[in-house]
């Protein structure tokens, strides 16, 4: 924290308090432990550098979720510009299956990550915010800067997709 927050000491404490959930959100977004931790670090750096943009009275954790999600989108777009043009959904489906040994290997977590990575990024971030992080529809809409109706449709699509993926795999998620 440098010069800028309305109350930099208090904000720093709130950022630290939000780190466990931010780490979970980042790992869920990326589908990968190390990538998720890198995203968390970038998010904290951005938050510290732009503390002056934080609106006093709003939630620090929701603000950091928004930063993390935007950074993740930027990374996906950058990857698309650098490499062959592939669909974001395909990136989501292949991430975690790229041969790296560091993919979350605990069985339940690996199964959950596979299910999450089966849905497009916009649906995944919405699902994570509401179902995993417990944000209300309105809070999720503010984080993702979309209308409430979009949150509802994304959640329904994510759940339908996850259910279909689970249904195709023997034994379901577990």
């Amino acid at each position: 924290m440098t010069d800028s927050g309305p109350d930099s000491g208090a904000m720093r404490a709130e950022i630290i308090a939000a780190l466990p959930r931010l780490r979970r959100f980042c790992r869920g977004l990326t589908g990968h432990g190390e990538d998720g931790d890198d995203l968390m670090q970038s998010t904290v750096e951005r938050a510290l550098a732009r503390a002056y943009q934080f609106e006093t009275g709003s939630r620090v954790d929701a603000w950091m979720f928004r930063i993390a999600r935007n950074l993740h989108i930027d990374a996906i777009r950058s990857a698309r510009r650098r490499g062959p043009q592939i669909d974001i959904e395909e990136i989501a489906e292949t991430s975690g299956e790229d041969g790296r040994d560091t993919v979350e290997n605990r069985s339940d977590l690996a199964a959950a990550q596979r299910a999450l990575q089966s849905v497009p990024e916009d649906q995944r971030s919405t699902f994570l915010l509401v179902v995993v992080e417990g944000l209300s529809y309105r809070e999720a809409a503010e984080v993702l800067e979309v209308p409430l109706g979009t949150i509802m449709s994304r959640l329904a699509r994510a759940r339908a997709r996850i259910d279909a993926v689970v249904g195709r795999s023997q034994g379901g998620l577990q």
């Binding site: 466990p20 959930r21 780490r23 979970r24 790992r27 869920g28 339940d108 977590l109 199964a111 959950a112 299910a115 999450l116 699902f127 179902v131 995993v132 759940r159 996850i162 259910d163 689970v166 998620l173 577990q174």
Partner: peptide, 13 residues
């Protein structure tokens, strides 16, 4: 599905 995914990710936090 919701319960399983949120439960599997809970230890991360």
């Amino acid at each position: 599905n919701d319960s399983f995914i949120s439960g599997a990710l809970a230890p991360l936090a």
